[in-house]
Write a protein that binds this DNA or RNA. Structure first.
Lengths: 119, 119
DNA sequence: TGGAGGCTTGACGGTAGTGTCAAGGTCGAG
DNA sequence: CTCGACCTTGACACTACCGTCAAGCCTCCA
């Protein structure tokens, strides 16, 4: 699949897809004429990337996170201690984010509920 | 409290605190000489701001989110329908973020657990 | 054969958040 | 009075993410 079709199927712009490749998040093959050649699996992968970026996760973290996903990519052949430590840190950061956001989301919920009650 | 002391107590740089003021997240009084004058409550508020920024929430959303917090600020006197709708949207976005991040955090957890088992 | 599209890379622009530096005002200690 | 520490605003710079435009190549179709 070429970049235009992938863009259409994912909702990402070609510019975004090229940027994701540049950041090492996707690695399309090349056709003989130089055109990028994406396989089916990358569609889901791009969806994950877009969701994570939307959620405020920078590409550098997405890059270490994606190999952990079931679908989309096989696990790396070699896992160094550094990589494991980085993943532990990532887990911690994600947990902190989730807690912080959930807490503030609940505060918004309470605020809205009270406002409705008082309205 | 002046900006230096607030910086020391929150861990934010003076530059950050001035930026937060510029974005309307905090509104210090001014001493006669022009120095910013922060009250105690702003310490907690700045902590919230830093956590939310760390979690990838832009200042524009933090601005509409902060008045929902119990501690730190009283609720606005007038809530327009637009503000309520914006808060509902914010709640939706925060929920989506939490779900996305929790899902990926769990994937990292499973990945690490399996790796350990296999190690 | 000549467009019309789609693709390539490269570059410039724009916003968000922040570091950093410059030029100057304020204040207390010596 | 002066020095040093702190404050002010303003500007320039950098990273991240992405829009957009330019110049050129590829492919298909009339």
């Amino acid at each position: 699949m070429r970049i235009g079709q992938l863009a259409e199927r994912t909702g990402a712009s070609p510019r975004q897809l090229r940027y994701y490749e540049q950041q090492g998040l996707i690695s399309p093959l090349r056709q003989v004429n130089g055109y990028r050649d994406f396989d089916e699996a990358v569609v889901e992968r791009v969806h994950s990337i877009m969701q994570l970026l939307e959620a405020g996760v920078p590409t550098r973290l997405i890059k270490v996170l994606l190999p952990c996903m079931r679908d989309g990519q096989r696990r790396p052949d070699f896992l160094t201690g550094d990589m494991l430590r980085e993943l532990e840190q990532l887990h911690g950061r994600l947990s902190a984010r989730v807690d912080c956001l959930a807490e503030h989301r609940d505060a918004v919920r309470r605020f809205l509920d009270e406002t409705e009650t008082w309205g």
